[in-house]
Design a binder for these strands. Structure first.
Lengths: 182, 182
DNA sequence: CCGTTATCTTTACAACGGTAAGATGGCGGC
DNA sequence: GCCGCCATCTTACCGTTGTAAAGATAACGG
Protein backbone atom coordinates (compact mmCIF):
# COMPACT_ATOMS: atom_id res chain seq x y z
CA UNK A 1 0.00 0.00 0.00
CA UNK A 2 2.26 2.67 -1.31
CA UNK A 3 0.66 6.03 -0.68
CA UNK A 4 -2.04 8.01 1.05
CA UNK A 5 -4.96 6.07 -0.24
CA UNK A 6 -3.47 2.70 -0.86
CA UNK A 7 -4.39 1.95 -4.42
CA UNK A 8 -6.47 4.78 -5.74
CA UNK A 9 -6.15 3.71 -9.33
CA UNK A 10 -7.82 0.37 -8.69
CA UNK A 11 -10.40 1.94 -6.38
CA UNK A 12 -11.47 4.37 -9.08
CA UNK A 13 -11.63 1.64 -11.68
CA UNK A 14 -13.70 -0.57 -9.40
CA UNK A 15 -16.04 2.29 -8.62
CA UNK A 16 -16.41 2.97 -12.34
CA UNK A 17 -17.15 -0.69 -13.02
CA UNK A 18 -19.80 -0.73 -10.33
CA UNK A 19 -21.41 2.49 -11.49
CA UNK A 20 -21.45 1.52 -15.17
CA UNK A 21 -22.79 -1.94 -14.38
CA UNK A 22 -25.64 -0.37 -12.44
CA UNK A 23 -26.55 2.72 -14.45
CA UNK A 24 -24.70 2.50 -17.75
CA UNK A 25 -21.82 4.60 -18.91
CA UNK A 26 -23.91 7.55 -20.06
CA UNK A 27 -24.21 9.39 -16.78
CA UNK A 28 -20.85 8.44 -15.33
CA UNK A 29 -19.44 11.16 -13.08
CA UNK A 30 -15.78 11.45 -12.20
CA UNK A 31 -16.58 13.37 -9.05
CA UNK A 32 -18.97 10.66 -7.95
CA UNK A 33 -16.22 8.07 -8.33
CA UNK A 34 -13.89 10.23 -6.27
CA UNK A 35 -16.52 10.57 -3.57
CA UNK A 36 -16.97 6.82 -3.43
CA UNK A 37 -13.23 6.30 -3.16
CA UNK A 38 -13.05 8.87 -0.36
CA UNK A 39 -10.66 11.27 -2.10
CA UNK A 40 -10.92 14.74 -3.49
CA UNK A 41 -12.51 15.16 -6.90
CA UNK A 42 -9.23 16.05 -8.58
CA UNK A 43 -7.29 13.06 -7.29
CA UNK A 44 -8.05 10.67 -10.17
CA UNK A 45 -6.69 13.15 -12.70
CA UNK A 46 -3.15 12.33 -11.64
CA UNK A 47 -3.65 8.64 -12.39
CA UNK A 48 -5.76 8.86 -15.53
CA UNK A 49 -5.20 12.38 -16.79
CA UNK A 50 -8.73 12.62 -17.95
CA UNK A 51 -12.24 11.28 -17.57
CA UNK A 52 -11.70 9.52 -20.88
CA UNK A 53 -8.51 8.17 -19.37
CA UNK A 54 -10.50 6.19 -16.81
CA UNK A 55 -12.54 4.61 -19.57
CA UNK A 56 -9.36 4.04 -21.57
CA UNK A 57 -7.87 2.06 -18.71
CA UNK A 58 -11.11 0.13 -18.43
CA UNK A 59 -11.14 -0.68 -22.12
CA UNK A 60 -7.52 -1.87 -22.04
CA UNK A 61 -8.24 -4.07 -19.05
CA UNK A 62 -11.30 -5.40 -20.83
CA UNK A 63 -9.37 -6.39 -23.95
CA UNK A 64 -6.78 -8.15 -21.80
CA UNK A 65 -9.46 -10.09 -19.95
CA UNK A 66 -11.18 -10.96 -23.22
CA UNK A 67 -7.95 -12.22 -24.73
CA UNK A 68 -7.38 -14.40 -21.66
CA UNK A 69 -10.91 -15.77 -21.79
CA UNK A 70 -10.65 -16.62 -25.48
CA UNK A 71 -7.26 -18.24 -25.06
CA UNK A 72 -8.61 -20.37 -22.23
CA UNK A 73 -11.62 -21.45 -24.30
CA UNK A 74 -9.49 -23.17 -26.91
CA UNK A 75 -9.76 -23.50 -30.67
CA UNK A 76 -13.25 -24.78 -31.18
CA UNK A 77 -15.51 -22.03 -32.45
CA UNK A 78 -18.64 -22.78 -30.48
CA UNK A 79 -16.79 -22.78 -27.17
CA UNK A 80 -14.83 -19.68 -28.13
CA UNK A 81 -18.09 -17.98 -29.01
CA UNK A 82 -19.65 -19.00 -25.73
CA UNK A 83 -16.58 -17.63 -23.96
CA UNK A 84 -17.01 -14.34 -25.83
CA UNK A 85 -20.60 -14.04 -24.70
CA UNK A 86 -19.77 -15.13 -21.18
CA UNK A 87 -17.11 -12.43 -21.01
CA UNK A 88 -19.58 -9.79 -22.18
CA UNK A 89 -22.03 -10.79 -19.47
CA UNK A 90 -19.50 -11.23 -16.70
CA UNK A 91 -17.57 -8.05 -17.42
CA UNK A 92 -20.55 -6.04 -18.49
CA UNK A 93 -19.05 -2.63 -17.80
CA UNK A 94 -15.79 -3.44 -19.56
CA UNK A 95 -17.61 -4.76 -22.60
CA UNK A 96 -19.86 -1.74 -22.81
CA UNK A 97 -16.95 0.66 -22.72
CA UNK A 98 -14.72 -1.30 -25.10
CA UNK A 99 -17.08 -0.81 -28.01
CA UNK A 100 -17.79 2.84 -27.31
CA UNK A 101 -14.60 4.31 -28.76
CA UNK A 102 -15.95 7.84 -28.78
CA UNK A 103 -15.91 7.78 -24.98
CA UNK A 104 -12.21 7.01 -24.51
CA UNK A 105 -8.84 7.25 -26.26
CA UNK A 106 -8.93 4.37 -28.75
CA UNK A 107 -5.35 5.01 -29.90
CA UNK A 108 -3.87 4.59 -26.44
CA UNK A 109 -0.91 2.15 -26.68
CA UNK A 110 -2.17 -0.11 -23.92
CA UNK A 111 -5.51 -0.36 -25.65
CA UNK A 112 -4.16 -1.16 -29.10
CA UNK A 113 -1.80 -3.90 -27.89
CA UNK A 114 -4.51 -5.48 -25.77
CA UNK A 115 -6.99 -5.23 -28.61
CA UNK A 116 -4.57 -6.88 -31.02
CA UNK A 117 -4.02 -9.68 -28.54
CA UNK A 118 -7.76 -10.26 -28.28
CA UNK A 119 -8.17 -10.12 -32.04
CA UNK A 120 -5.50 -12.76 -32.56
CA UNK A 121 -7.04 -15.04 -29.99
CA UNK A 122 -10.38 -14.61 -31.72
CA UNK A 123 -9.23 -15.31 -35.27
CA UNK A 124 -7.12 -18.25 -34.15
CA UNK A 125 -10.22 -20.19 -33.19
CA UNK A 126 -12.01 -19.34 -36.40
CA UNK A 127 -9.04 -20.31 -38.55
CA UNK A 128 -8.86 -23.68 -36.87
CA UNK A 129 -12.56 -24.14 -37.57
CA UNK A 130 -12.42 -23.09 -41.22
CA UNK A 131 -9.41 -25.33 -41.77
CA UNK A 132 -11.60 -28.23 -40.68
CA UNK A 133 -14.65 -27.27 -42.72
CA UNK A 134 -12.85 -25.73 -45.68
CA UNK A 135 -14.52 -22.35 -45.93
CA UNK A 136 -13.34 -18.88 -46.71
CA UNK A 137 -11.54 -17.94 -43.51
CA UNK A 138 -11.94 -14.20 -43.77
CA UNK A 139 -15.66 -14.01 -44.43
CA UNK A 140 -16.45 -16.85 -42.05
CA UNK A 141 -14.36 -15.22 -39.36
CA UNK A 142 -16.23 -11.96 -39.68
CA UNK A 143 -19.54 -13.84 -39.65
CA UNK A 144 -18.59 -15.74 -36.51
CA UNK A 145 -17.39 -12.66 -34.72
CA UNK A 146 -20.49 -10.74 -35.81
CA UNK A 147 -22.74 -13.50 -34.56
CA UNK A 148 -21.37 -13.69 -31.04
CA UNK A 149 -20.82 -9.96 -30.78
CA UNK A 150 -24.32 -9.18 -31.91
CA UNK A 151 -25.78 -11.75 -29.54
CA UNK A 152 -23.79 -10.28 -26.65
CA UNK A 153 -24.77 -6.68 -27.33
CA UNK A 154 -28.41 -7.52 -27.94
CA UNK A 155 -28.48 -9.48 -24.72
CA UNK A 156 -26.93 -6.59 -22.84
CA UNK A 157 -29.38 -4.00 -24.11
CA UNK A 158 -32.26 -6.31 -23.29
CA UNK A 159 -33.39 -6.39 -26.90
CA UNK A 160 -33.64 -10.14 -27.21
CA UNK A 161 -36.98 -11.87 -26.66
CA UNK A 162 -37.54 -12.96 -23.10
CA UNK A 163 -38.45 -16.54 -24.02
CA UNK A 164 -34.80 -17.46 -24.48
CA UNK A 165 -34.45 -18.39 -20.84
CA UNK A 166 -32.08 -17.16 -18.20
CA UNK A 167 -29.01 -19.21 -18.99
CA UNK A 168 -26.95 -17.03 -21.30
CA UNK A 169 -24.32 -19.67 -21.83
CA UNK A 170 -26.79 -22.27 -23.02
CA UNK A 171 -28.58 -19.84 -25.32
CA UNK A 172 -25.30 -18.61 -26.74
CA UNK A 173 -24.20 -22.17 -27.44
CA UNK A 174 -27.42 -22.94 -29.28
CA UNK A 175 -27.14 -19.79 -31.35
CA UNK A 176 -23.47 -20.32 -32.11
CA UNK A 177 -24.18 -23.84 -33.32
CA UNK A 178 -26.46 -22.47 -36.03
CA UNK A 179 -23.47 -21.10 -37.90
CA UNK A 180 -21.77 -24.45 -38.37
CA UNK A 181 -24.58 -26.96 -38.66
CA UNK A 182 -26.36 -27.31 -42.00
CA UNK B 1 -44.11 27.23 -40.42
CA UNK B 2 -46.16 27.54 -37.28
CA UNK B 3 -44.15 29.60 -34.81
CA UNK B 4 -41.18 31.78 -34.18
CA UNK B 5 -38.54 29.44 -35.41
CA UNK B 6 -40.40 27.47 -37.99
CA UNK B 7 -39.78 23.89 -37.02
CA UNK B 8 -37.49 23.84 -34.05
CA UNK B 9 -38.17 20.24 -33.24
CA UNK B 10 -36.83 19.02 -36.56
CA UNK B 11 -33.95 21.49 -36.47
CA UNK B 12 -32.80 20.17 -33.10
CA UNK B 13 -33.12 16.57 -34.26
CA UNK B 14 -31.14 17.30 -37.42
CA UNK B 15 -28.45 19.07 -35.42
CA UNK B 16 -28.27 16.09 -33.06
CA UNK B 17 -27.97 13.69 -35.98
CA UNK B 18 -25.17 15.72 -37.46
CA UNK B 19 -23.31 16.04 -34.18
CA UNK B 20 -23.63 12.37 -33.28
CA UNK B 21 -22.61 11.26 -36.75
CA UNK B 22 -19.48 13.38 -36.48
CA UNK B 23 -18.38 12.98 -32.86
CA UNK B 24 -20.47 10.22 -31.37
CA UNK B 25 -23.18 10.53 -28.78
CA UNK B 26 -20.87 10.69 -25.77
CA UNK B 27 -20.15 14.40 -25.74
CA UNK B 28 -23.49 15.58 -27.07
CA UNK B 29 -24.46 18.99 -25.70
CA UNK B 30 -27.99 20.31 -25.65
CA UNK B 31 -26.73 23.89 -25.55
CA UNK B 32 -24.60 23.28 -28.62
CA UNK B 33 -27.64 22.04 -30.51
CA UNK B 34 -29.57 25.12 -29.46
CA UNK B 35 -26.75 27.35 -30.65
CA UNK B 36 -26.72 25.65 -34.03
CA UNK B 37 -30.47 26.06 -34.36
CA UNK B 38 -30.18 29.72 -33.43
CA UNK B 39 -32.37 29.59 -30.35
CA UNK B 40 -31.79 29.94 -26.63
CA UNK B 41 -30.51 26.95 -24.73
CA UNK B 42 -33.82 26.40 -22.95
CA UNK B 43 -35.94 26.33 -26.10
CA UNK B 44 -35.60 22.59 -26.87
CA UNK B 45 -36.86 21.70 -23.39
CA UNK B 46 -40.37 22.64 -24.40
CA UNK B 47 -40.31 20.18 -27.31
CA UNK B 48 -38.43 17.32 -25.72
CA UNK B 49 -38.69 17.92 -22.00
CA UNK B 50 -35.24 16.62 -21.45
CA UNK B 51 -31.88 15.92 -23.02
CA UNK B 52 -32.83 12.27 -22.93
CA UNK B 53 -36.05 13.31 -24.65
CA UNK B 54 -34.10 14.39 -27.72
CA UNK B 55 -32.44 11.00 -27.90
CA UNK B 56 -35.80 9.34 -27.26
CA UNK B 57 -37.28 11.07 -30.28
CA UNK B 58 -34.25 10.04 -32.29
CA UNK B 59 -34.58 6.43 -31.22
CA UNK B 60 -38.28 6.33 -32.08
CA UNK B 61 -37.60 7.82 -35.49
CA UNK B 62 -34.84 5.29 -35.98
CA UNK B 63 -37.08 2.32 -35.21
CA UNK B 64 -39.68 3.66 -37.63
CA UNK B 65 -37.10 4.04 -40.39
CA UNK B 66 -35.73 0.58 -39.68
CA UNK B 67 -39.17 -0.98 -39.85
CA UNK B 68 -39.75 0.72 -43.19
CA UNK B 69 -36.41 -0.43 -44.54
CA UNK B 70 -37.01 -4.03 -43.47
CA UNK B 71 -40.53 -4.06 -44.88
CA UNK B 72 -39.23 -2.76 -48.20
CA UNK B 73 -36.50 -5.42 -48.30
CA UNK B 74 -38.96 -8.26 -48.40
CA UNK B 75 -39.00 -11.73 -46.89
CA UNK B 76 -35.71 -13.18 -47.99
CA UNK B 77 -33.26 -13.23 -45.10
CA UNK B 78 -30.10 -12.22 -46.91
CA UNK B 79 -31.71 -9.12 -48.41
CA UNK B 80 -33.38 -8.25 -45.11
CA UNK B 81 -30.02 -8.58 -43.40
CA UNK B 82 -28.37 -6.39 -45.98
CA UNK B 83 -31.15 -3.84 -45.45
CA UNK B 84 -30.49 -3.96 -41.71
CA UNK B 85 -26.82 -3.23 -42.21
CA UNK B 86 -27.51 -0.58 -44.81
CA UNK B 87 -29.85 1.13 -42.38
CA UNK B 88 -27.20 1.12 -39.66
CA UNK B 89 -24.67 2.70 -41.99
CA UNK B 90 -27.04 5.22 -43.56
CA UNK B 91 -28.67 6.31 -40.32
CA UNK B 92 -25.56 5.99 -38.21
CA UNK B 93 -26.65 8.40 -35.47
CA UNK B 94 -30.10 6.82 -35.14
CA UNK B 95 -28.65 3.34 -34.93
CA UNK B 96 -26.09 4.34 -32.35
CA UNK B 97 -28.72 5.90 -30.10
CA UNK B 98 -31.30 3.13 -30.52
CA UNK B 99 -29.11 0.56 -28.84
CA UNK B 100 -27.97 2.82 -26.02
CA UNK B 101 -31.07 2.60 -23.85
CA UNK B 102 -29.34 4.11 -20.83
CA UNK B 103 -29.14 7.40 -22.72
CA UNK B 104 -32.84 7.86 -23.40
CA UNK B 105 -36.30 6.83 -22.14
CA UNK B 106 -36.69 3.29 -23.46
CA UNK B 107 -40.25 2.99 -22.12
CA UNK B 108 -41.53 5.96 -24.08
CA UNK B 109 -44.73 4.93 -25.90
CA UNK B 110 -43.54 6.14 -29.29
CA UNK B 111 -40.37 4.14 -28.88
CA UNK B 112 -42.04 0.89 -27.84
CA UNK B 113 -44.58 0.91 -30.66
CA UNK B 114 -41.93 1.71 -33.25
CA UNK B 115 -39.64 -0.93 -31.79
CA UNK B 116 -42.38 -3.55 -31.91
CA UNK B 117 -43.06 -2.67 -35.52
CA UNK B 118 -39.39 -3.12 -36.39
CA UNK B 119 -39.21 -6.38 -34.47
CA UNK B 120 -42.17 -7.81 -36.35
CA UNK B 121 -40.72 -6.82 -39.69
CA UNK B 122 -37.50 -8.50 -38.66
CA UNK B 123 -38.95 -11.78 -37.47
CA UNK B 124 -41.28 -12.00 -40.47
CA UNK B 125 -38.33 -12.42 -42.79
CA UNK B 126 -36.70 -15.00 -40.60
CA UNK B 127 -39.89 -17.03 -40.24
CA UNK B 128 -40.30 -17.14 -43.98
CA UNK B 129 -36.74 -18.38 -44.27
CA UNK B 130 -37.00 -21.03 -41.58
CA UNK B 131 -40.27 -22.26 -43.09
CA UNK B 132 -38.33 -22.89 -46.30
CA UNK B 133 -35.33 -24.57 -44.66
CA UNK B 134 -37.13 -26.22 -41.77
CA UNK B 135 -35.14 -25.01 -38.81
CA UNK B 136 -36.03 -23.94 -35.32
CA UNK B 137 -37.48 -20.49 -35.92
CA UNK B 138 -36.69 -18.99 -32.54
CA UNK B 139 -33.03 -19.89 -32.30
CA UNK B 140 -32.40 -19.26 -35.98
CA UNK B 141 -34.10 -15.91 -35.73
CA UNK B 142 -31.92 -14.83 -32.86
CA UNK B 143 -28.85 -16.06 -34.71
CA UNK B 144 -29.79 -14.13 -37.83
CA UNK B 145 -30.52 -10.96 -35.94
CA UNK B 146 -27.33 -11.34 -33.94
CA UNK B 147 -25.32 -11.81 -37.10
CA UNK B 148 -26.45 -8.68 -38.88
CA UNK B 149 -26.58 -6.62 -35.72
CA UNK B 150 -23.09 -7.63 -34.73
CA UNK B 151 -21.77 -6.94 -38.20
CA UNK B 152 -23.39 -3.51 -38.19
CA UNK B 153 -22.07 -2.48 -34.79
CA UNK B 154 -18.60 -3.83 -35.44
CA UNK B 155 -18.51 -1.96 -38.73
CA UNK B 156 -19.62 1.23 -37.00
CA UNK B 157 -17.00 1.09 -34.30
CA UNK B 158 -14.33 0.39 -36.88
CA UNK B 159 -13.48 -2.92 -35.28
CA UNK B 160 -13.65 -5.01 -38.43
CA UNK B 161 -10.49 -5.72 -40.43
CA UNK B 162 -9.84 -3.19 -43.15
CA UNK B 163 -9.37 -5.78 -45.87
CA UNK B 164 -13.11 -6.23 -46.23
CA UNK B 165 -13.31 -3.46 -48.78
CA UNK B 166 -15.37 -0.32 -48.82
CA UNK B 167 -18.68 -1.66 -50.03
CA UNK B 168 -20.63 -2.40 -46.87
CA UNK B 169 -23.57 -3.83 -48.75
CA UNK B 170 -21.48 -6.38 -50.60
CA UNK B 171 -19.59 -7.42 -47.46
CA UNK B 172 -22.81 -7.72 -45.51
CA UNK B 173 -24.33 -9.89 -48.21
CA UNK B 174 -21.33 -12.21 -48.18
CA UNK B 175 -21.41 -12.49 -44.41
CA UNK B 176 -25.17 -13.00 -44.28
CA UNK B 177 -24.91 -15.83 -46.81
CA UNK B 178 -22.68 -17.77 -44.44
CA UNK B 179 -25.61 -18.43 -42.16
CA UNK B 180 -27.71 -20.26 -44.73
CA UNK B 181 -25.22 -22.03 -47.00
CA UNK B 182 -23.72 -25.30 -45.77
C1' DC C 1 18.32 13.03 8.11
C1' DC C 2 17.01 15.82 4.27
C1' DG C 3 15.60 16.82 -0.27
C1' DT C 4 13.11 14.93 -4.19
C1' DT C 5 9.07 13.40 -6.17
C1' DA C 6 4.79 11.12 -6.53
C1' DT C 7 0.39 11.70 -4.55
C1' DC C 8 -3.48 14.22 -2.97
C1' DT C 9 -6.12 18.74 -1.64
C1' DT C 10 -7.69 23.24 -2.32
C1' DT C 11 -9.28 26.79 -5.14
C1' DA C 12 -11.02 28.57 -9.28
C1' DC C 13 -13.44 28.73 -13.76
C1' DA C 14 -16.20 27.80 -17.81
C1' DA C 15 -19.71 24.81 -19.58
C1' DC C 16 -23.56 21.99 -18.87
C1' DG C 17 -28.52 20.29 -17.74
C1' DG C 18 -32.59 21.74 -15.64
C1' DT C 19 -36.07 25.08 -13.47
C1' DA C 20 -38.89 29.12 -13.05
C1' DA C 21 -40.70 33.38 -14.42
C1' DG C 22 -41.49 36.54 -17.94
C1' DA C 23 -41.76 38.07 -22.92
C1' DT C 24 -43.51 37.21 -27.69
C1' DG C 25 -46.66 36.40 -31.14
C1' DG C 26 -49.96 33.43 -33.84
C1' DC C 27 -54.76 31.90 -33.57
C1' DG C 28 -59.68 31.31 -32.52
C1' DG C 29 -63.85 33.47 -30.50
C1' DC C 30 -66.66 37.36 -30.33
C1' DG D 1 -61.28 44.20 -36.07
C1' DC D 2 -60.21 43.37 -31.64
C1' DC D 3 -59.11 40.66 -27.47
C1' DG D 4 -57.77 36.95 -24.76
C1' DC D 5 -55.57 32.48 -24.84
C1' DC D 6 -51.88 29.58 -25.19
C1' DA D 7 -47.99 27.50 -27.47
C1' DT D 8 -43.45 29.04 -28.07
C1' DC D 9 -39.25 31.14 -26.91
C1' DT D 10 -36.08 34.15 -23.78
C1' DT D 11 -33.86 35.56 -19.64
C1' DA D 12 -32.04 34.74 -15.18
C1' DC D 13 -30.63 31.51 -11.95
C1' DC D 14 -29.02 27.17 -9.48
C1' DG D 15 -26.35 23.05 -8.62
C1' DT D 16 -23.10 19.92 -10.84
C1' DT D 17 -19.52 18.63 -13.78
C1' DG D 18 -14.69 18.34 -16.00
C1' DT D 19 -10.36 20.44 -16.02
C1' DA D 20 -6.46 23.35 -14.76
C1' DA D 21 -3.22 25.51 -11.46
C1' DA D 22 -1.02 26.00 -7.16
C1' DG D 23 -0.12 24.45 -2.65
C1' DA D 24 0.16 20.67 0.99
C1' DT D 25 1.59 15.94 2.38
C1' DA D 26 4.17 11.90 2.91
C1' DA D 27 6.86 7.97 1.07
C1' DC D 28 11.40 6.93 -0.70
C1' DG D 29 16.39 7.28 -2.01
C1' DG D 30 20.87 9.15 -1.23
Amino acid sequence: MPYHHGDLRRAILDAAIESISAHGSAGLSLRELSRRAGVSHAAPIHHFGDKAGVLTALAAEGYELLADALAAAGDEFVEAGVAYVRFAVTYKAHFEVMFRPDAYHPDDPAVVTARNRAREALTAGVHAQTARTGRDARVTGVAAWSLVHGFATLWQTGALPADLGEDVTASAREVAKVLFTP
